[in-house]
Design a protein around this nucleic acid. Sequence first.
DNA 1: CTTTTATATGAATGATTGTTCATATGTTTA
DNA 2: TAAACATATGAACAATCATTCATATAAAAG
Lengths: 115, 115
Amino acid sequence: MASECKHDHTELLGRVKGEMPTDEFLSDLADLYKIFGDSTRIKIMFSLYEEEMCVCAISELLGMTQSAISHQLKVLKDAKLVSNRREGKTIYYRLADDHVKSIIAQGFDHLLEED
Amino acid sequence: MASECKHDHTELLGRVKGEMPTDEFLSDLADLYKIFGDSTRIKIMFSLYEEEMCVCAISELLGMTQSAISHQLKVLKDAKLVSNRREGKTIYYRLADDHVKSIIAQGFDHLLEED
DNA sequence: CTTTTATATGAATGATTGTTCATATGTTTA
DNA sequence: TAAACATATGAACAATCATTCATATAAAAG
């Protein structure tokens, strides 16, 4: 399956391989970024950046159905990127921790700092 | 299309809306993270973390076909996350800048710091 | 206890996307 | 210039996934 070129990479590959995390770790890392890689979810997380919001407020803000928002909130919650609390019939969501904020801010800066 | 709940969110929505970037910006942000959200691409970027590598070395390292690697390198290059140089028949790829490293490192830390 | 309100969820569908296969491009060597 | 080598790329296929629709759960109000 792999390449069939005639180069000799044994030295280089040995070095690089030694510094690579496990496949499992790298898959987890990809899965984490995958969650940030959807504009609906990004918008939800941005909405929650400053304060908590209930589901219907988010769906109103984004102009999307309550169902679509609930599905994405579930994805975010399963990934522990948001948490929630119930108050009567209403459920309020908030960002899980400051780490989420810093990841958003990081990509934000990257986009802004492009020539 | 939007929610039809009876809550009054006008005040909240006004506040949050004022701090939200444009849809276009948030889509670009999602697109950026989408690129990090694939384990093959993450592995490629990690491979290039310390030093440049040619295509066949990467495909040998990851145990994947040259074609698959080339396709993903194109995605990474279009997003300006990697750049390359030619040396005879061989083409060497490297990370475009330190921003890519810091984004990777950020997610890395997030995974490591979980309970 | 029935109705209303707020949210969650399963199934279906359409769109996106990663890999493969075949082939093309570009460079060196014989 | 013909063959070998390194990489790129278009088309096809399979798999993933975001949204929709219908419906379920759960709490409050009447």
